[in-house]
Design a protein around this nucleic acid. Structure first.
Lengths: 391, 391
DNA sequence: CTAGTTTGCTGTGCAGGGCAACAAACAGGG
DNA sequence: CCCTGTTTGTTGCCCTGCACAGCAAACTAG
């Protein structure tokens, strides 16, 4: 219940403009006046301040062949970068992402064994130093975003439980903050994926969506409700994998029976395909190419279970869009109509009519973009007040 | 992506102050300065403007026995009122609710048969005229809020489908607007109940909660996610009744099998209790007094099914609180521990530890307060700009 | 080259919150 | 009862930041 004053107006307007150029790419000043409703002179002053802060850059106008004086282009600076980190069971993937949207670098550091939190920190520090040297002083690192396969407490980045990494109550964000001197924000990997798809993928401009990702280690998800990422009270929201979808006794990683994660697994399909492990693209190709009736039957069984979980969420949340990532996108691709029909049988007609189900659009950069967005989100909230470290 | 200007600051500050006195009751000016962070002089000016608008009233200070000059009390005006309407299968309940929180009047207009939309409008107009005459010109009606047992499209108040009333695509809000000359806002009854419990009941100050209400006609619900009521893309969110909780073939009112609404019903309990119909309080008393093992068994069966639906929602939304209303509160009262334990078996430990399950606090005024809040919410968003009709 | 259009730039006006100084209203202590 | 210390209301002034108008600049079209 905070009151507003002049500073808040300035902060909000800077935030709105920087957010626009970050999300929508380079935009002309005249477009900014139209979209924000602010006066030309105000836009000029705001853009000037953003440029002084080094967050935006003004370029000569593009040739538009339009009547009237051409308008300057405004773009978010790609030299303002976030370090994106994604620890997994067999590797730590680290990237450098610019505010303008460019993924400058991405490195997958393979690990001999599942990394501890300390391992992840050490690797991150190491890669950060190399990246800094490589990119030179023009690039300013404003923070670190971490996408963790597990439950992460939102406010302080404590990893409560990451089963596949074997982490329990690891103060990852704090450790990284101490080791790098940068501000660190951590969140669940699926939640960050949802945010990435929402802003830069299949969910652009959509205010209510559900994102479900199927990985080797299970099923996670994220929600956007009313335009804002829904974290729940502590940031643990989105655990679709443990929704009960059948009365079978098969249990998931948390020991709960009959859940989505127990019934719908990538490994069951890999077994039937006669494959050990496949990268996601090869997996989808193999699945689509398969003519085996057993494979087909298993896909259909999994789609029907997936439909139960989706239907429940659709009835409750009335979303505009369901985005499926990972192997869930693959089984969806085999028979989209079956999934949609199964969902339709379990939902009310009205919410069903307004929902679309589609595959994720962002590929391998998903988690890099999402993790970087964790940092940029704070920067965008208060462009002037966010402490920019020197360098 | 709107920009802000001075008007927005004023609007927001007026909004913040009026919302505070509306939600928290009378508050001193000095408290307002502390909570909002605004200057004394600013608070004085803002309160003065609200008083001029007739929305707030300043009173002499309460005796506090504190050192220093006593601070003026500020209260929302109870003469600013909303008409709350709740059509049901056998009656239309209509009330007059003041901005300060007082329910000035409440009338249950019994209906010989299930009212049509036109019946509901006619009754409302009739009651409104009587109330206006009764209360006199000092009371200003700022709008009409309607809590409808069915799916309501948020932006225009179209009732898409109200199965128990037999309504399909009734433009209820538009009809009422034409008939009364007041602004009308309609929403699902359970959603408005969630809002009421959130602001004035069990969920005060809580940002993430789930509300489930069990009525004679089924189970509905509402969500508060991140502090905001979650309506979904069109306002249909919260339909917990159609969540699949078992593999049984029993169907609900929408024809979906094995859902919460199919398994958990008030009528099954009434049958076992040997009662035809009971008002909610009598029902709960009878249920708690019953020593029949069949009743006990049925309650436990229903609690176990309820647990499945709650667990799914808790995993997905990580709420701080689950509020149970109607007969769901009654079966919960029989054995709270059983429900909690059953939920615990189906949820992840971390979100489970942070959630509390409790009965609703607001009794028979729930829907009156909630429906009025639909109107007040708009008024609070822009106290100066909300058009106050004369009278 | 001219007319028309759109945008950038500059100086001014204005609304509204912050601030400081003073007065007013309280409690507590002697 | 008076004095002191504390807190709040009130008033006048200041400062910030957006709007607006007027003019110059840069484009298209004919």
């Amino acid at each position: 219940m905070q009151g507003s004053n002049h500073d808040d107006v300035r902060r909000r307007n800077l935030s709105v403009i920087l957010r626009l150029v970050h999300r929508a790419g380079p935009v002309s000043r005249s477009q900014l006046t139209r979209v924000t409703g602010l006066n030309r002179s105000t836009i000029a002053a705001l853009v000037g301040e953003l440029a002084e802060l080094g967050l935006a850059e003004e370029r000569e106008p593009d040739a538009t062949n339009q009547v009237g004086r051409p308008s300057m282009m405004v773009a978010a600076s790609d030299h303002v970068v976030a370090l994106a980190v994604n620890p997994e069971i067999d590797a730590v993937t680290i990237g450098v992402v610019g505010l303008g949207g460019t993924v400058h670098r991405r490195i997958r550091e393979a690990m001999a064994q599942s990394p501890s939190a300390a391992d992840a920190v050490a690797t991150t520090v190491d890669v950060l130093q190399r990246m800094r040297a490589e990119l030179g002083p023009r690039f300013r690192f404003v923070g670190v975003g971490v996408a963790v396969p597990g439950l992460v407490r939102a406010h302080d980045g404590l990893v409560r439980h990451a089963p596949h990494l074997g982490w329990v109550d690891e103060p990852l964000a704090g450790m990284l903050e101490a080791a790098t001197g940068l501000r660190v924000f951590a969140a669940n990997d699926a939640s960050t994926g949802a945010m990435a798809e929402r802003h830069f993928g299949a969910g652009r401009g959509i205010t209510d969506l559900i994102y479900l990702n199927g990985g080797a280690s299970g099923i996670g998800g994220g929600l956007i409700v009313g335009g804002a990422p829904a974290g729940g009270v502590a940031g643990y929201a989105g655990e679709f994998g443990h929704t009960r979808v059948s009365s079978s006794a098969a249990t998931d990683s948390a020991g709960i029976a009959g859940t989505l994660e127990a019934e719908v697994t990538r490994s069951a399909l890999l077994d039937l395909l006669g494959q050990g492990t496949l990268d996601p693209d090869d997996f989808e190709r193999a699945l689509l190419a398969s003519t085996s009736p057993q494979v087909r039957h298993e896909v259909e069984r999994q789609l029907d279970h997936l439909a139960v979980a989706l239907a429940g969420a659709i009835n409750i949340l009335n979303p505009q869009l369901v985005v499926l990532g990972g192997f869930l996108a693959s089984i969806h691709a085999v028979d989209p109509e079956r999934l949609r029909a199964a969902v339709g049988r379990l939902t009310l007609p009205v919410p069903f009519d307004s929902v679309r189900i589609c595959p994720a659009q962002l590929g391998s950069n998903l988690l890099m973009i999402g993790a970087a967005e964790l940092v940029f989100e704070r920067l965008l909230d208060d462009p002037g007040g966010f402490v920019l470290p020197a360098g």
